[in-house]
Design a protein around this nucleic acid. Structure first.
Lengths: 138, 138
DNA sequence: CTCTAAAGTAGTAATAATTACTATTATTAC
DNA sequence: GTAATAATAGTAATTATTACTACTTTAGAG
């Protein structure tokens, strides 16, 4: 693997992002620095970086794949209120592969988990909305 | 919702399948009975049946969506040896939403979990292969 | 039974996400 | 510097899925 400034920029776009960008978002951000980069290059490098273990890919139900700078094992939860994707890491999820392995006899190599729900904020907002019959307080 | 023989056939294709067919597989099977059915009709009805709670959709990482006749909650594991998708239902997975809810403060509405690994058979095969340095016994 | 409104279909086009192809360019080891 | 090779830009192709539209089917009222 040779150096390329495009790949460096793609990696940095993932490392510097605060969220979990998809290829399109990475493309938009890298274009600020390298305006003539092509979307294909972004895809190729994202996948290459995943292959080399430098970033991770998140498979989203009904959405385009996202990319993650965090390499330590964790899972994700998508808030249907604010449409943000959050990291979660609970003891149970960390042990889940071993548990399933024992209970099923399969050898577990990996897993993809995405929860859907409402984050604390959105949960609270809905509660208030409910109490006020949909009329929001100013 | 009015009756249609196309929808009935689509539902039956899912109910009678032993695995977890995707839209294309359902299409192929329904065409044996209704040769002029269109793929769009298959997709529309599959999604409609999911919406009405009569079947479920499985979101597969890097693969097309699949459909499931089983309505009781369970999760799935994909064997990378034989490329089959199996149902799993362990106590831990059944409680996972409540556990995550408690530990994170989110309100969990649903989740999508797919494990990747090797089923018992494929695990055994690989072991034998390994022991024999890749030379298979006859 | 026949008529009509609404729902559904076939066939096709469009879209979204992603991968593949190819001529040109950049990197790197000598 | 030069040659081998990896990488890129730009474009085309692919896959999975949804949207559109003219025609057909269903089902309820008269």
């Amino acid at each position: 693997m040779k150096y390329s400034k495009q790949r460096e920029a793609v990696l940095n776009a993932v490392l510097w992002s605060n969220g979990h960008p998809n290829a399109e978002t990475v493309y938009e951000n890298v274009r600020k620095e390298i305006p003539h980069i092509s979307l294909g290059t972004v895809y190729r490098n994202l996948n290459l970086l995943v292959e080399k273990g430098m970033i991770k890919k998140i498979y989203m139900p009904s959405q385009s794949d996202r990319f993650d700078k965090e390499l330590e094992h964790h899972d994700h939860i998508y808030c249907e209120g604010c449409h943000q994707l959050f990291d979660i890491s609970t003891s149970n999820l960390n042990e889940i592969n071993q548990i399933v392995e024992k209970e099923t006899g399969f050898q577990i190599l990996s897993h993809d988990i995405v929860f859907q729900g409402l984050c604390k904020n959105c949960r609270q907002e809905r509660k208030i909305e409910g109490e006020n019959y949909g009329i929001k307080r100013i």
